[in-house]
Design a protein around this nucleic acid. Structure first.
Length: 901
RNA sequence: GGGCGGUUAGCUCAGUUGGUUAGAGCGUUGCGUUGACAUCGCAAAGGUCGUAGGUUCGAGUCCUAUACCGCCCACCA
């Protein structure tokens, strides 16, 4: 003990311990097909890490998933599973490309100036330089990943998996290329998927204008939010039953300024009640218009280029931006008397999830996955229970998305990513889809091949992650043993992006679910529930928190105090509170180590009578805790389990047992040894329980505990011998409840109550702990229990043992003493000169009033149909309470009477 | 438009087979340096569990309706 500082120096310990764990190979699964001692009979437990962006920086989202997953991995490792946590990182196409482009611009050059090959080269260099940072930061969180199995989505193996997947889907007809309405990001100049578009409410206008009928001065009033798209209009649509416009259907109207003639069509889609009831149709720039145009065989006029600049189809507006074209066209229309009015209107603007720029719906030739068949299989896997989603409410969200899913646009016009494995023969115009780079055209033998310029959506490779990281498409030993994985733990915000797609791809390529359980955690917000963002300045940096308060405190904060799937509001104060807990564990352990220092080395014979009440109590409480934790872990209630361990450790073990242990230790001899043994075993169990939550401080303390205990021949909680490290020690298993537990716990509760009441009264009377006072207790049938506990009561209630008497009953109540009744045990405190009779009377009367309330309540409860209908055990419990209250009441009455006038 | 979550102590949140005086942390108040811990100890104050109904012997917990806050999906010009 003497060599342990008063406060836990986590800074030094964390690095040292992590390095030790890693060097000793504890992060590797205990049964490993890559090693000669592989034992396939051991059940594996596997998590694939949600791969962080390779150039990312640690944020609380990482802290959350690492804490959660490391908890599960450590727990299962201790339970004896072959626990494998596969680490890795994601190339993160758009995010990384943007970062590198920013760097290039700072250098005065650009992606375009460099050209594709040089750009890719620079990006790899960037990755080499910054790619390791995030992994180091994840190590700091204590992640017990098998780093030898680390993977990267662009490494050769995973790239091979991507090609295999692409070719298989293509051969099956599940991948196709064609023109389709997609979301175009004009700044990035790439297509993005529906999921990558976010809608934001923004103020704008609804522009009302005239669509003049050809050869007439009649017009159809039309409303639009985007006047510039008039340039691409190919029809005006009205509802077929709309009396106002019925006569116009089939005639032509004139596109403003451009003068093109376009038809008036009738379509059910039009809502007569909205706007003017007439809808302009711009098939190339609006998804709904596109759908209508398909029904009516309307032509498509694309009036914007890749950068959303008006092209040659925009006539006089060619070369203008969307915003500029809108303004100019509207001005010109006003001059031509085509404008009716502008109405303020709330717009729902599609913006890029990445850059925030306005997304342009656009018809473009892209690669798509025909998702329906995959989605159906993925739905079935959850419906029939092969995959369980926790918390359950997200299954509905999952169903809803997959039931309404659209084909997935997988091509991106980027340079950083998996290039689409398709080549076009310049000689015969054939398309070649191949796992290997072809050297000649298999159709004509020509060697003028050009590979498709596009890369795949980053999520395409992520979707293969659980099996590609284990070696797929090879049937590797890893894949055979560790797949399907056990739990997919991630944030609910990527349920669609990632989880659903992994399930679809997993089922398609391996015929099995990629994991059995999906555990979704919530998002980490600031203490007011606001999303953290740099602009708001409310970001909590996990690295700083770890520096200041320790990794364990941060981890405990992520794990405890919120429910699965619920967002968590994190404040530094909360982490501080948990730092205090780590410190509590440290100091309680430090005390116990000190006890061992002073313990006679040689074993002594057992104490007669065995355990004290406190020993039995703490043991019974520990067993109850172990059972509870096991039950909670089984239903993924890790937070509640952590809270209970915290409560037990601090409020029961440290506050009560350790305090009583001090008394028992003072007896010396066999009693002291017995007590030391209990201290060691309970502490050992607690450190094991806490280890998945707070791995560092527990490992550090446990090392000291192990050494000291071994010196004294003291056994651990679990097993006969002390394993070499806590991280690989066995999980403490609870025993089924035994008959004595409830009784001992009840007896001890009485002792606690008596002590608390005395302390309470002392506090009321301002009798400081330094002042020892006398006490007279009439215990009735509880006398034997209290006699055994006399020393404890005296010590913890700060009584003078010389003036402390216990008896079954008193012939007459002591005079001039403050009195209490605790569960029908009478307590008298002779506070000489401090007892004010009238104040005492008032206090007793108040007490009686409270108890009378309970008596009345219970009497009426037991007199009601409750007594007949409720289970006997429940009723008996209430009867018992009533009896105790009644007894207490009558004793209080006696005490009151004895005060005299 | 559809769906989900939240509403519990001053603040941030737990409370999962419905069991009868509702818990924690922080904050507040009083006392305390009793040799593990002031990153602490002892004690206290503080809640009609959003509202209204219902089921039940019994509801924070189940059902219905409703208010407010937040989120997701859809994307009516």
């Amino acid at each position: 003990m003497t060599d342990l500082p008063k406060t836990y120096d986590f800074q030094a310990a964390e690095r040292r311990i992590y390095q030790w764990w890693e060097e000793r190979g504890y992060f590797k699964p205990r049964s490993d097909p890559r090693r000669p001692d592989f034992d396939p009979a051991v059940e594996p437990f596997v998590i694939s890490i949600p791969p962080p962006n390779v150039t990312g920086e640690l944020h609380l989202g990482h802290a959350m998933f690492v804490s959660m997953e490391d908890l599960m991995i450590r727990y299962h490792r201790m339970k004896g599973y072959a626990a494998l946590w596969v680490p890795g990182s994601d190339h993160a196409g758009i995010a990384t490309q943007l970062q590198v482009e920013r760097m290039l611009i700072a250098e005065g050059t650009s992606r375009e100036a460099l050209g594709r090959e040089a750009f890719e080269q620079r990006t790899w260099e960037w990755k080499a330089k910054y790619g390791g940072i995030i992994q180091q930061q994840i190590r700091r969180l204590g992640a017990s990943c098998d780093w030898e199995r680390e993977r990267f989505t662009l490494d050769p193996g995973l790239s091979r998996a991507v090609r295999e997947a692409f070719v298989r889907l293509y051969d099956k007809g599940l991948i196709y290329r064609g023109p389709r309405m997609i979301n175009w990001s004009p700044g990035l100049k790439t297509a993005v998927s529906d999921l990558e578009v976010e809608y934001s409410q923004e103020p704008g206008f609804l522009y009302h204008f005239k669509y003049m009928l050809d050869g007439s001065d009649e017009y159809i009033p039309v409303a639009t939010t985007r006047p510039e798209t008039i340039l691409g209009d190919t029809a005006v649509a009205v509802h077929p039953e709309d009396e106002r416009y019925r006569a116009f259907v089939g005639r032509s109207v004139i596109v403003p300024i451009l003068g093109r003639k376009i038809p008036v069509i009738a379509d059910d889609y039009v809502d007569r009640a909205f706007g003017t009831g007439a809808l302009k149709i711009t098939p190339a720039h609006d998804p709904n218009d596109y759908a209508i145009s398909q029904r009516h065989n309307l032509p498509l006029i694309n009036m914007l280029d890749d950068s959303a600049i008006v092209n040659e189809n925009g006539g006089p507006y060619q070369g203008l931006s969307r915003e500029e074209a809108r303004k100019r066209l509207w001005d010109d229309m006003r001059a031509a008397d085509l404008v009716i009015r502008e109405e303020p209107y709330q717009l729902n603007v599609p913006r890029s999830q990445r850059g925030g720029e306005i997304i342009e719906p656009r018809v473009s030739t892209q690669w798509f996955v025909r998702i329906q068949p995959l989605a159906e299989a993925a739905l079935a896997a959850v419906r029939d229970g092969r995959i369980k989603i926790v918390p359950e409410r997200f299954t509905k969200v999952y169903y809803n998305w997959l039931e309404n899913i659209e084909d997935w646009c997988i091509s991106r016009q980027l340079w950083w990513g998996h290039r689409i494995p398709v080549w076009y023969c310049q000689d015969c115009n054939e398309q070649i889809v191949s796992r290997e780079d072809p050297t000649a055209c298999p159709h004509c033998g020509g060697n003028h091949l050009r590979q498709d310029e596009d890369v795949l959506d980053t999520w395409f490779s992520s979707a293969l992650w659980p099996f590609s990281t284990l070696g797929w498409p090879e049937q590797t030993p890893d894949l055979r043993y560790f797949y399907p994985t056990s739990v997919m733990e991630t944030g609910y915000d990527i349920l669609f992006f990632w989880v659903a797609r992994m399930i679809m791809m997993g089922l398609e390529f391996t015929g099995e679910v990629p994991f059995h359980t999906v555990y979704l955690h919530g998002l980490v917000r600031d203490e007011n529930g606001q999303k953290m963002s740099k602009t708001k300045g409310n970001v909590i940096d996990p690295l700083l928190v770890m520096d200041e308060l320790g990794t364990d405190a941060l981890r405990f904060s992520m794990l405890v105090g919120s429910a699965p799937g619920n967002d968590m509001n994190l404040s530094v104060k909360k982490v501080e509170a948990n730092r205090n807990f780590a410190n509590k564990v440290w100091n309680a352990s430090r005390f116990i180590l000190g006890v061992l220092d002073n313990l006679p080395a040689a074993p002594v014979e057992l104490v007669e009578g065995g355990w004290t009440l406190a020993d039995s109590w703490v043991w019974g409480r520990l067993q109850a805790l172990l059972r509870d934790v096991e039950r909670l872990f089984a239903v993924h209630q890790y937070g509640e389990a952590g809270r209970q361990i915290y409560e037990f450790f601090w409020s029961e073990f440290a506050d009560w047992y350790v305090e009583i242990a001090k008394i028992q230790l003072a007896e010396g001899g066999a009693r002291a040894r017995e007590t030391a043994e209990t201290l060691v075993r309970v502490l050992d169990a607690c450190l094991r329980l806490l280890h998945p939550f707070t791995p560092f401080v527990t490992e550090e303390l446990w090392g000291h505990l192990r050494a000291a205990a071994q010196q004294h021949g003291l056994r651990p909680f679990t097993g006969q011998e002390w394993p070499e490290a806590l991280i690989i020690a066995a999980w403490p298993e609870g025993q089924p409840e035994e008959g004595w537990e409830a009784q001992k716990i009840a007896e001890f509760s009485l002792v606690q109550e008596i002590i608390r009441s005395i302390r309470n009264l002392r506090a009321e009377r301002k009798v400081t702990p330094g002042r020892r006072i006398g006490a007279i207790i009439a215990a009735g049938e509880r006398l034997p229990v209290l006699q055994e506990q006399a020393r404890t009561i005296a010590a913890l209630a700060f009584l003078d043992p010389q003036q402390f008497t216990l008896s079954a009953a008193l012939s007459e109540p002591p005079q001039g003493a403050a009195s209490l009744v605790v569960s029908s045990v009478e307590v008298y405190l002779p506070l000489a000169g401090m007892v004010d009779t009238s104040a005492e009377r008032a206090r007793l009367q108040g007490e009686m009033h409270d108890i009378q309330t309970q008596v009345t309540r219970l009497e009426s409860l037991l007199g009601s149909s409750f007594a007949q209908k409720a289970p006997a055990s429940v009723v008996n419990k209430e009867r018992q309470k009533l009896a105790t209250y009644q007894d207490t009441l009558s004793k209080l009455k006696t005490q009151l009477d004895s005060l005299g006038e």
